[in-house]
Amino acid sequence: MIDGIQKVAGLSMTRDLGEVTSSSSAASAFGTGGSAASTGASFSEVLGNMAVDAANSLKSAEAISFDGITGKANTREVVDAVLQAQQSLQTAIAFRDKIVSAYLDITKMQI
Protein backbone atom coordinates (compact mmCIF):
# COMPACT_ATOMS: atom_id res chain seq x y z
CA MET A 1 0.00 0.00 0.00
CA ILE A 2 2.73 2.45 0.97
CA ASP A 3 5.28 1.15 -1.54
CA GLY A 4 3.83 3.42 -4.24
CA ILE A 5 5.14 6.41 -2.32
CA GLN A 6 8.71 5.30 -2.95
CA LYS A 7 8.28 6.37 -6.55
CA VAL A 8 8.55 9.97 -5.32
CA ALA A 9 12.27 9.44 -4.70
CA GLY A 10 12.65 8.38 -8.32
CA LEU A 11 11.45 11.80 -9.47
CA SER A 12 14.33 13.65 -7.85
CA MET A 13 18.08 13.60 -8.22
CA THR A 14 18.41 11.98 -4.79
CA ARG A 15 18.02 8.31 -5.62
CA ASP A 16 19.26 5.50 -3.37
CA LEU A 17 19.22 7.53 -0.19
CA GLY A 18 18.40 4.54 1.95
CA GLU A 19 16.11 4.71 4.92
CA VAL A 20 16.11 7.74 7.13
CA THR A 21 16.21 6.87 10.80
CA SER A 22 13.05 7.46 12.74
CA SER A 23 14.84 9.88 15.08
CA SER A 24 15.35 12.41 12.29
CA SER A 25 12.84 15.20 11.95
CA ALA A 26 11.79 17.90 9.53
CA ALA A 27 14.03 20.33 11.41
CA SER A 28 17.11 18.35 10.37
CA ALA A 29 15.87 18.31 6.78
CA PHE A 30 15.73 22.11 6.79
CA GLY A 31 19.27 22.36 8.05
CA THR A 32 18.48 23.68 11.53
CA GLY A 33 20.45 20.81 12.92
CA GLY A 34 23.55 22.30 11.30
CA SER A 35 24.52 19.33 9.12
CA ALA A 36 22.60 20.34 5.97
CA ALA A 37 23.59 24.00 6.27
CA SER A 38 27.28 23.24 6.74
CA THR A 39 27.46 20.86 3.76
CA GLY A 40 25.51 23.17 1.46
CA ALA A 41 22.65 20.77 0.72
CA SER A 42 20.80 21.58 -2.47
CA PHE A 43 17.08 22.17 -2.70
CA SER A 44 16.54 18.83 -4.44
CA GLU A 45 18.45 17.01 -1.67
CA VAL A 46 16.30 18.63 1.02
CA LEU A 47 13.07 17.75 -0.79
CA GLY A 48 14.33 14.25 -1.48
CA ASN A 49 15.21 13.73 2.17
CA MET A 50 11.80 15.01 3.23
CA ALA A 51 10.08 12.64 0.79
CA VAL A 52 12.08 9.68 2.09
CA ASP A 53 11.34 10.68 5.69
CA ALA A 54 7.61 10.95 4.95
CA ALA A 55 7.59 7.56 3.22
CA ASN A 56 9.45 5.96 6.13
CA SER A 57 6.99 7.53 8.57
CA LEU A 58 4.05 6.09 6.65
CA LYS A 59 5.66 2.65 6.48
CA SER A 60 6.42 2.74 10.20
CA ALA A 61 2.83 3.70 11.00
CA GLU A 62 1.55 0.89 8.81
CA ALA A 63 3.82 -1.64 10.53
CA ILE A 64 2.82 -0.44 14.00
CA SER A 65 -0.84 -0.57 12.98
CA PHE A 66 -0.43 -4.22 12.00
CA ASP A 67 1.36 -4.82 15.31
CA GLY A 68 -1.59 -3.22 17.08
CA ILE A 69 -4.02 -5.51 15.27
CA THR A 70 -2.07 -8.57 16.32
CA GLY A 71 -1.71 -7.30 19.89
CA LYS A 72 2.04 -6.64 19.80
CA ALA A 73 1.67 -2.86 20.22
CA ASN A 74 -0.55 -0.90 22.55
CA THR A 75 -3.14 1.63 21.44
CA ARG A 76 -1.02 4.63 22.41
CA GLU A 77 1.86 3.57 20.14
CA VAL A 78 -0.52 3.00 17.23
CA VAL A 79 -2.22 6.38 17.66
CA ASP A 80 1.12 8.21 17.96
CA ALA A 81 2.51 6.55 14.84
CA VAL A 82 -0.62 7.19 12.79
CA LEU A 83 -0.79 10.85 13.86
CA GLN A 84 2.88 11.33 12.99
CA ALA A 85 2.30 9.73 9.58
CA GLN A 86 -0.75 11.93 9.03
CA GLN A 87 1.26 15.04 9.85
CA SER A 88 4.06 13.96 7.49
CA LEU A 89 1.58 13.32 4.70
CA GLN A 90 -0.14 16.68 5.21
CA THR A 91 3.24 18.43 5.12
CA ALA A 92 4.19 16.63 1.90
CA ILE A 93 0.86 17.59 0.33
CA ALA A 94 1.33 21.23 1.37
CA PHE A 95 4.81 21.26 -0.19
CA ARG A 96 3.46 19.72 -3.37
CA ASP A 97 0.69 22.32 -3.58
CA LYS A 98 3.16 25.19 -3.07
CA ILE A 99 5.56 23.82 -5.68
CA VAL A 100 2.76 23.37 -8.23
CA SER A 101 1.48 26.86 -7.49
CA ALA A 102 4.97 28.35 -7.94
CA TYR A 103 5.41 26.45 -11.20
CA LEU A 104 2.07 27.74 -12.50
CA ASP A 105 3.03 31.30 -11.52
CA ILE A 106 6.32 30.96 -13.39
CA THR A 107 4.60 29.63 -16.51
CA LYS A 108 2.20 32.60 -16.47
CA MET A 109 5.06 35.13 -16.47
CA GLN A 110 5.64 37.04 -19.66
CA ILE A 111 9.10 37.01 -21.13
Rank of each mutant, 00 (worst) to 15 (best):
G48F: 08
Q90N: 13
A92G: 14
K72S: 13
F66N: 09
I2S: 14
F43Y: 11
F95N: 11
I93Q: 13
A36K: 01
G68H: 04
Q84R: 08
A55F: 10
A41H: 01
A61L: 08
T39K: 14
R96T: 15
I99V: 13
I69Y: 15
I111G: 11
V20H: 05
L83M: 13
A41V: 02
G10I: 08
K59H: 11
G33K: 08
I2C: 07
S12Y: 05
S101D: 11
M1G: 12
S24F: 02
D53T: 12
S38E: 05
T14Q: 08
S44H: 08
V100E: 15
A29F: 08
S60P: 03
K72W: 11
Q6K: 15
K59T: 06
G18C: 00
K59V: 04
A92M: 14
T21F: 01
A51F: 13
N49W: 07
I69R: 06
T75Y: 01
T32Q: 14
M13H: 11
V52H: 03
I99Y: 09
V82G: 03
M1Y: 00
D105P: 02
S28R: 08
A92R: 05
T32V: 07
M50L: 15
G4P: 00
S101I: 02
T75L: 04
V100G: 10
V79K: 01
G33R: 07
V20W: 03
Q90M: 07
L89G: 03
K59G: 08
K98E: 10
T107S: 10
S38G: 01
A54F: 06
G68Y: 06
T91R: 06
F66Q: 14
S65G: 15
Y103D: 14
